[in-house]
Write a protein that binds this DNA or RNA. Structure first.
Length: 480
DNA sequence: GCACAAGGTTCCCGTGGTGG
DNA sequence: CCACCACGGGAACCTTGTGC
């Protein structure tokens, strides 16, 4: 949930209001439910809650049965509390692991030279953030970019003293491509190169495809990476926003996580990025951005599952953001779209070679074009890829119920285990559910895309014995 | 081909610190 | 006291390499 759906989501609210919004959609003619849904809720928040709720149920189908059963209120409460704790733990875990690497990631060519002064991966972070000359440039708000280039030391001092405010509304420079970031800055086209910064790229890979891939190398990991574990088939705005938050926090001087860092609000930053991409008036820009990210993460512009393009389903209902940078960029994009439309509206000029495709036609063409991986993939994979539905819905269809393995159920494990009830089992038997192992263990095997990337090998006979001997060893060690 | 060891990655869990 | 967070260590899982 934290990494792929909503970092700041409150599961309780998602369930409560997602349910109401779902009912509202089912009974669109009946406005009797409207009274129970907060009227002040903006369309953006409604959409987000709805999306969160749907994702939650896709990932844990058995939860729906529990939600609809008033008798299970206590169970739901326990699950919700545990899920909220886990979201915090996941974010904290990612931040902790990322901290050891961030010194490498901010260096443009870490194999040749690190940054100066060096960034320590242990101890206090007081020397980081704007206190570090290289990080100061990364974190410098885009509006102060020219100033920073003219006089770095003075601008850094102003950032330290707070004379130049770093707010979530002013995106930091590390989000832009270039070395140093935002080196090719176009005042009139600020969205050019946005969300393509090399630090962000490395952090994205670190989180979703494993630390060993962060610098562009082939994965040395033998465990399925987060992209596989989470059924991530293409890069979505939430992934970019999550990595941006983690990258910004890793570079900051804050030793302890908090939603606010001085004037900078991570929550606003996170949702600002999602909104910026989801509600972008320039669809071409969004399509290009997603293709670019899919190439960087999956080496395939259509994503890990070449058929599951979630591209194009953005709503543009909500008014533009109230924030200055965003407002400006969105205005620039809108102007660009208008200009394109004017060009398209002109009498057609004779084509040089082939008739021009409409924009949507181009998009469809691009999406339909077989990706390099699907080209070489097996037939079964092709069928899955072209099947259309997103990964989550496929995963449940392709799930082969595994025999239940009951282990000691600790409080911390409760939510994952409850969420991984065999949803094919009879709902009547929910009171004595059969527990599966945590999704972590099932995910790679039950997910279609995961299987496409790392073909499942038959379980080896020795696994249990070696694992037993291993755990035996460690238990003996811990007894010491 | 099989058994085993080694190694990379993610997740889990306990512990200690801190602030309200 | 409680909630939240960082951190370290270990478990689990999986792949690759190696020796027989």
């Amino acid at each position: 949930m934290a990494r792929c759906t909503d970092l700041f989501c409150n599961i309780e609210r998602v369930i409560e209001e997602g349910m109401l919004l779902g009912q509202e959609a089912d009974l669109s003619d009946d406005d009797s439910l409207d009274a129970s849904i907060p009227q002040k809720m903006s369309p953006t928040i409604r959409e987000r809650l709805k999306r969160d709720y749907e994702t939650l149920l896709q990932q844990a189908p058995s939860l729906k049965v529990l939600i609809n059963d008033p008798k299970k209120k206590k169970v739901i409460d326990t699950i919700v509390a545990e899920m909220n704790i886990t979201i915090g733990q996941i974010r904290s875990d990612d931040a902790t692991r990322l901290r050891a690497y961030i010194g490498q990631y901010v260096a443009p060519r870490p194999l040749e030279a690190g940054v100066s002064p060096p960034i320590m991966s242990v101890g206090s972070k007081s020397g980081m953030g704007v206190n570090h000359p290289v990080l100061a440039r990364m974190l410098c708000p885009a509006s102060a970019r020219d100033e920073f280039i003219k006089n770095p030391s003075r601008t850094r001092q102003q950032l330290i003293e707070g004379n130049i405010r770093m707010t979530a509304e002013e995106f930091p420079l590390f989000l832009w491509e270039g070395d140093p970031p935002a080196v090719q800055w176009d005042e009139e086209n600020q969205s050019d190169g946005l969300f393509k910064g090399y630090v962000l790229e490395r952090v994205m890979r670190h989180i979703f495809t494993g630390p060993s891939t962060a610098l562009g190398e082939q994965s040395r990991g033998t465990r399925p990476c987060n992209a596989i574990l989470h059924g991530m088939t293409s890069v979505e705005p939430e992934h970019i926003a999550y990595a941006s938050v983690q990258a910004r926090y890793a570079m900051s001087s804050k030793n302890k996580w908090g939603e606010v860092d001085g004037d900078f609000n991570y929550r606003k930053f996170y949702y600002g990025i999602i909104k910026m991409i989801r509600e972008c008036p320039d669809e071409d820009w969004v399509v290009d951005l997603k293709k670019w990210w899919n190439m960087k993460i999956f080496r395939n512009e259509s994503g890990r599952d070449s058929g599951a393009g979630a591209i194009g389903d953005f709503n543009t209902e909500e008014a533009a953001s109230s924030t200055s940078s965003l407002q400006k960029m969105q205005a620039q994009m809108a102007a660009r779209v208008a200009a394109k439309q004017r060009v398209n509206a002109r009498p057609p000029t004779p084509p040089r070679s082939s008739p021009p495709l409409s924009r949507t036609g181009q998009d469809e063409h691009a999406l339909a074009r077989p990706s390099p991986s699907s080209h070489h993939s097996g037939r079964a994979e092709d069928e899955n890829a072209s099947a259309g539905p997103s990964f989550s819905s496929l995963s449940s269809e392709h799930t082969t119920p595994s025999p239940a393995k009951v282990k000691k159920v600790s409080k911390k494990h409760l939510h994952v285990r409850v969420l991984s009830f065999d949803h094919n089992s009879d709902p009547e038997e929910e009171s004595t559910p059969t527990l599966r192992r945590s999704p972590r263990k099932n995910a790679p095997n039950t997910n279609v895309e995961g299987a496409a990337i790392t073909p499942k090998r038959p379980a080896r006979k020795h696994t249990s014995t070696s694992a037993a001997s291993k755990s035996g060893k460690s238990k003996a060690k811990s007894r010491r």
